[in-house]
């Protein structure tokens, strides 16, 4: 316990924390966790959302109605509060936080996919494939999914930033990763106590989160412009 709360120096570029651990090392190590979790959560959201959207859009009728009311319900709650409740019920753990965030966030994907499917279904190239006697599976896999991929991928990149914030927020509140796991939100939470003596403890993970979220947003914007200018406005509508 010699190097407690050392200010940034050449040896410890971002200083050390209350237990004498190097903050930069913990940040770098934590990035694997934070980014990894964010990607996993976003992927789960994307898969659930796309599946629900495809089913709702293609099946129509009461299935569509039921699924969309569920989506509306989810969207009506502030996501982070709902996640907080779920994670609170399930008990504090990283897996539970991931679960909570995934359950809360797929609704917007379902919305986007469903509206894309509805408009694509009316497009004549889909009708053309149906008139050739092609099955629904063929039409869905070959025509629908490739054509909705672009907007969904863009939405996902924009969403990753939000997920990182969500995980960090929940971890900050003590629901997610438990110390000593080096997760950005947890680091932020545990550094809070020492904010008067050691500003770097809070600022370093804070800036990291900010830069990452910003970076993903810029990436999403670029992808949106790149992939297909015609489809970009669908995302803006959400």
């Amino acid at each position: 316990m010699i190097h407690q709360l050392e200010a940034p120096s050449l040896v410890h570029p971002l200083g050390t924390d209350q237990l004498g651990r190097d903050v930069l090392t913990r940040l770098l190590h934590g990035s694997r966790l934070s980014l990894g979790i964010a990607v996993i959560v976003t992927t789960v959201r994307l898969v659930i959302g796309t599946a629900v959207g495809l089913v709702a859009g293609y099946a129509g009728g009461w299935i569509d109605e039921a699924l969309m009311r569920l989506v509306d319900t989810l969207l009506a709650f502030p996501g982070i509060v709902l996640a907080l409740v779920i994670a609170g019920i399930l008990g504090p753990s990283l897996v539970n936080v991931m679960l909570a965030l995934a359950v809360v966030g797929w609704a917007s994907y379902a919305r986007l996919v469903r509206s894309s499917v509805l408009s694509l279904r009316e497009r004549e190239f889909v009708t053309a494939a149906r008139l050739l006697g092609r099955s629904r599976t063929h039409v869905t896999v070959r025509h629908l999914i490739p054509n909705i991929a672009a907007p969904v991928v863009v939405l996902a990149t924009l969403d990753i930033g939000g997920v990182i914030l969500g995980i960090s927020g929940l971890s900050f509140l003590g629901l997610g990763a438990q110390p000593p796991t080096p997760e950005w939100g947890t680091m932020l939470a545990s550094g809070r106590t020492y904010i008067r003596q050691a500003w770097w403890l809070v600022n370093a993970p804070g800036v990291c989160i900010m830069i990452t979220v910003l970076g993903f947003n810029i990436l999403g914007d670029c992808l949106r412009d790149r992939l297909s200018p015609a489809q970009s406005n669908q995302i803006e509508k959400l």
């Binding site: 004549e124 190239f125 009708t127 053309a128 006697g133 490739p146």
Partner: peptide, 21 residues
Amino acid sequence: PSQCRQIGVVFQHVRESFDPR
């Protein structure tokens, strides 16, 4: 499928009737 294939279609909006990808 074979009954479907007895009828061919050329759509009014040709450009719309092809998958742009």
